[in-house]
Design a protein around this nucleic acid. Structure first.
Lengths: 209, 209
DNA sequence: GTTCGATCTTGTCACTGTCAAGCAAATTTC
DNA sequence: GAAATTTGCTTGACAGTGACAAGATCGAAC
């Protein structure tokens, strides 16, 4: 507690962080089903039972990884939220932030989105996922205030969240890593734009220029 | 091949079907991570290696289950497609069909949506998932023809698919089974309506009555 | 410099997926 | 209608897994 960095200086250095990193890397490489506590321990250079000491069990480790992912996502969304006052631009920035974060953290997102091994009542998990949700909510409120005063904010939030999450999934970002990160990223950028347009104007609305 | 029903009459009766059913039940009970080949074999009353004979390995069994799920979904979507000529009513019927099928087949949907243990290049899997996608596409074409001639059908399909899939996920239909099926079903019905409205009119559009 | 608690290791257990070999029943072949 | 063959399933084995218990080792506090 004396030094700033000393907080994380254990025998190993900082095992919890190393274990999370190893887990993210492993899942990004082999997919969620390729995960194993023992392999993670091996990669971090510790014995097979070391993870249990910090995270209890598999669920504990994966939950912690998911919380870390939501924390990163929340930061990105909050930044996007303040990037513009125009509701369309703001939502677009949010979509880009979501997708970019997913691309940069495939191992995290694989456990964040759908994973029955994650405890979604965990404190830090709840805090960070709520922070992400609230950033989205603020974007939707901008839309309500400037475009449609009668908009049901809750319904719209669920709608946007589901849509963007579905997009990330459909793009195959969650299984094995996209080896063609380049082309994936390019087509995703287009998708984000068409999604944003459709979310705001709907399928019956006028088309973009 | 002589009799109609004889095709499935093995020692056990019809092991492949029994194994799929046991798998769906097990996953619905304990979630995808609670699945085990040996537990499935136990429930079907056969030895631990019996499944391998029909499905090769875990991936084979889960892929087969996913294909079965998409087949059911495609049937439901095709029925919804023909339920109305009104594009809004048709899409609404499609959304209801999707959600109802998911509710009635939680074990199937848990492996259909996101699962790196499913081989998505499998023939039957491809056939049935394409059949589902094409039913949705036909709905979107109705929208284009009657509401918005300039609609990008492919983009709209991806959008709808992602949205509805995201909704099913967010509703927690894929983890553990919803024990409160009643209330879930009711709130889902509302969600489907608001989703359909938002997909067609967008967040900036006029609100429903 | 001893105590004490946090960090990590070693050893073990029941369980898992997969493979190889064998058995039994059904179907074919003559 | 018996022999041969294919199909359906069982038994046995092996390396790997998650979780637990007990012990070792290190850092810090006093």
């Amino acid at each position: 507690m004396v030094e700033a960095a000393a907080k994380g200086a254990y025998h190993h250095g900082n095992l919890p962080d190393s274990l999370r990193a190893a887990t993210a890397e492993l899942i990004a490489e082999k997919g969620p089903s390729g995960f194993s506590l023992r392999e993670v321990a091996r990669r971090a250079g510790v014995s097979h039972a070391a993870p249990a000491h910090h995270f209890g069990d598999t669920e504990g480790l994966l939950t912690s990884l998911a919380a870390e992912g939501y924390s990163t996502l929340a930061d990105a969304l909050e930044e996007a939220l303040q990037s513009s006052d125009d509701p369309y631009e703001c939502l677009l920035a949010g979509g880009r932030a979501y997708v970019n974060t997913a691309l940069e953290n495939p191992g995290h997102f694989a456990v964040m989105v759908v994973n029955d091994q994650v405890c979604n009542t965990d404190g830090e998990f709840l805090t960070e996922s709520m922070r992400s949700y609230e950033a989205l909510q603020a974007m939707i409120i901008k839309i309500r205030d400037q475009l449609n005063p009668e908009l049901d904010v809750d319904a719209a939030c669920t709608f946007c969240w589901a849509s963007i999450q579905g997009l990330v999934q459909l793009s195959g970002l969650l299984d094995k890593v996209a080896d063609d990160m380049g082309t994936t990223k390019a087509s995703l950028d287009e998708s984000i734009e068409s999604f944003t347009h459709l979310m705001i104007n709907g399928m019956s609305g006028e088309q973009p220029a």
